[in-house]
Nucleic acid binder design. Structure first.
Lengths: 198, 198
DNA sequence: CAAAACATACCGACTGGTCGGTTTGATTCT
DNA sequence: AGAATCAAACCGACCAGTCGGTATGTTTTG
């Protein structure tokens, strides 16, 4: 019993993931998901209270995968700048992890920005990343590998860069080798653009 | 006669701008726009072929205003880094220029990303900005105020930063003084984060 | 058998867009 | 001047279809 139930649930999630990525959240109807999954609407609403809740599950899955990817590159590096560069390297994986699903997250979020409940679910992880990098930079300053910059500001910058690149990746996936761009950007950010007097 | 027509058209555009910003693009129906504008659906479709086309007009208006804002800070420059910082200063104005309308652009774009025609209308200005900054950086390198970095890459970074901050501004307008953050970030980007051996 | 799992038929609300008709205001004709 | 004319501007009832969600029935499973 539980066996079949879980399979069905997984089937719904997987199918929805694919269709959302393909046509977007709004453009994909519950009926379409059911048809493609070879199930009925009854089955769908047996497993999920609303379409939104199904989506939130997808969102959580994705955030979890990001967290894992990010944490992995945290521990092996002794030096903060190196850790940051390594993180930039993993960006490509994060891009692909979403597997074309990024636009749908964006769409969903922009739709649900007025719903307080959904709003919390989306903004919380964002603040988490902000704090994460702030801490990282503080460590870097403490260990002397980074300048004595404003950690909060620097963290905002890094998050901005990440978000900006994610968005551009969505916009134009083929236009650039975004994984490479992420890595090089981190180097550039660490070194600075302006010529120094020597 | 033409007098009235233009007033009506403006009325539609203004009302739509407000409602889209308030509730989003999809969530705002044509009927709602008509009601709020004190007009009929017939009037609406007399002036605009589709809801999408009305939106594209709003988009164009906004892009024009950005271009103007950006170009203004271009000519008084003495030195490329200074011009870049000055541009970062104007970011705040660009944020406010959209006046709560940013989410709707995002939503619309994420919805219409599969429509080739709309796609062109949205991606073209984006590429324009990329080239604009690339050129700026080349000039900076030529005049010796910038390091000999990869101009394309640096331009991508700046655009990424801008996009990322725009998005975060949308996400959390009150959370930070984003105008100030933009300015400081540009300084940080020019100087770099990493401590130099001296 | 009871409860969970799934299917089917259906609902009410709402959508963008259409269409035949009416109003308006400037132009032309007498 | 004033009546006739005509096209642009505007109205609003009305599609044809979609949507998320529900109520009720049927099958499967422990």
């Amino acid at each position: 019993m539980q066996q079949r139930s879980e399979e069905t649930r997984k089937q719904i999630v997987d199918t929805a993931q694919t269709l959302f990525a393909q046509h977007g959240y709004e453009a994909t109807s519950v009926s379409e998901i059911c048809d493609a999954a070879g199930l009925s609407k009854g089955a769908f609403y047996h497993h999920f209270p609303t379409k939104q809740m199904l989506f939130l599950e997808l969102l959580d899955n994705w955030l979890d995968r990001i967290d894992n990817t990010l944490d992995q590159s945290r521990w092996e590096k002794a030096d903060i700048p190196q850790a940051m560069i390594h993180m930039a390297n993993t960006t490509k994986g994060i891009f692909q992890e979403a597997d074309g699903g990024l636009p749908m997250f964006l769409e969903f979020w922009s739709q649900a920005r007025l719903d307080p409940e959904i709003w919390q679910a989306t903004i919380a992880p964002y603040h988490r990343y902000q704090k994460y990098f702030k801490l990282l930079i503080k460590e870097g300053i403490a260990e002397g590998s980074l300048k004595d910059v404003n950690p909060h500001l620097a963290a905002l910058m890094i998050v901005s860069l990440a978000i900006g690149m994610l968005l551009q990746y969505v916009l134009d996936p083929q236009g650039e080798n975004w994984g490479e761009v992420a890595t090089q950007s981190m180097h550039l950010l660490l070194d600075g653009l302006a010529r120094r007097e020597e």
